[in-house]
Design a protein around this nucleic acid. Structure first.
Lengths: 221, 221
DNA sequence: CTGTTTTTTACGGAAAACCGTAAAGTGACG
DNA sequence: CGTCACTTTACGGTTTTCCGTAAAAAACAG
């Protein structure tokens, strides 16, 4: 459940409208700041007080002014926040955002949602919040299609078998034995290792744990 | 025997695919609507005409649009339908749904089945329909596991941190370094190992991979 | 402060996973 | 049949994880 929310947005009107949207969703009293540094400070303090935030809603672009800031962009804020609180959910609410930027945010920083500022952004914001509350990600509409196409490293039945067994607690040599028993063609330990490496490479995962996490998230297994 | 079915689902494509699945099961001509209010209306009329529905298949989440609706969610529709026709069988077909939500639906509203939208949802839909036709309930796979393992070992923030980092591809010594850097108290490699063992033991997992799979499935991380 | 209990850390050997390389097997083709 | 290209397997060394034990640190009681 999402209850404790921090809004980082330098435009006051936008900041207020986000608060209003949250109000409609019966999420009362969000904290809000107008500077990235303040945001990070809040997150740190909340963490130390054992009352950490559930969600950070942030813009990407912040106007510079008289107050000198260590953190000057949403990207940097996100990285810093992730660093001190990995389980923090992050929703980016921005007008800018090239596809490559957005993609990087999802993949590298593992953000939970991205909403374009625009015509129906309040409605999208609500949707995104609901999705995030259900532990799902919210991709901007335009992105969904591309994302789908991009994820096209098609895992075949063999891959699925390995991954499923692995997710069920089987060790690699056990998987090898299983494959032999069922006369599935490549059954050597080396083949399993090689295949796993290929998959990890294709899906940009560094450990088995990360790979399994990804596959379960994506409902591949 | 299930013959007269009503589908409430706002996404046209999904609605059609449900109809197609029913067709394969030789259940012809289901009624379908795109709004909750329409669904309730149909149920009422059918009841008065002495030709009540056997089964309602409904989503939980309905997109808002220009048409103002009295009933805006699947939950509300289910409650209203139960109210006017207590013997109506109900199958929820949804992508959302925290375990707690699903549990509440089964216990409070006495729904007959729940199917996650996802990769193999058509196949699951068939299974669910068969079960329901035999007057049995159909629980989603994840739910069964969770039910089984309600050993209620409460994972604390520390556990979540470790698991999250691990699911993000960090190795254990990296996690240790991370904890040290952020002054999180137990940071030794041994402590991480020990904690992981405790969690695996509590959740009945034999490998890290299985543990991560479980946690992602259960939306713990 | 002293002694006791609990938690955390350090360390070392065993198991598993990782990674490169070479050998054995397989299939297509002339 | 022999060659070539490719896949699969076997094997050894390295890294990472696993697991037990013991020292060190912290928390606690008297």
């Amino acid at each position: 459940m999402i209850q404790k929310i921090l809004i980082a947005e330098d435009y006051e009107t936008v900041n207020l409208s986000i608060q209003k949207t949250l109000e409609e969703l019966h999420i009362p009293n969000p904290d809000y700041v107008y500077y990235c540094d303040d945001a990070l400070l809040r997150i740190e303090k909340a963490l130390q007080a054992n009352a950490s935030y559930d969600l950070l809603i942030t813009d990407l672009h912040f106007e510079e002014d008289h107050r000198q800031q260590k953190i000057s962009s949403g990207e940097a804020l996100i990285a810093a926040a992730r660093n001190i609180q990995p389980d923090l959910k992050i929703l980016v609410f921005s007008a800018t955002g090239k596809p490559s930027t957005i993609e990087a945010l999802f993949q590298k920083e593992d953000i939970d949602g991205y909403v374009y500022k625009g015509r129906n952004d309040a409605r999208e914001l609500k949707l995104a919040l609901e999705q995030i509350a259900a532990n799902r990600r919210y991709f901007p509409q335009q992105f969904v299609q591309q994302q789908k196409q991009k994820n096209t490293y098609e895992l075949d039945a063999f891959d699925i078998t390995i991954l499923t067994l692995m997710a069920n607690g089987k060790r690699q040599h056990e998987i090898s034995a299983y494959l032999k028993k069922n006369n599935i063609k490549p059954s050597g330990l080396s083949s399993i290792e090689k295949r796993l490496n290929t998959i990890k490479d294709a899906l940009d995962c560094s450990t088995n744990e990360q790979l399994i996490a990804h596959c379960v998230k994506m409902r591949i297994i």
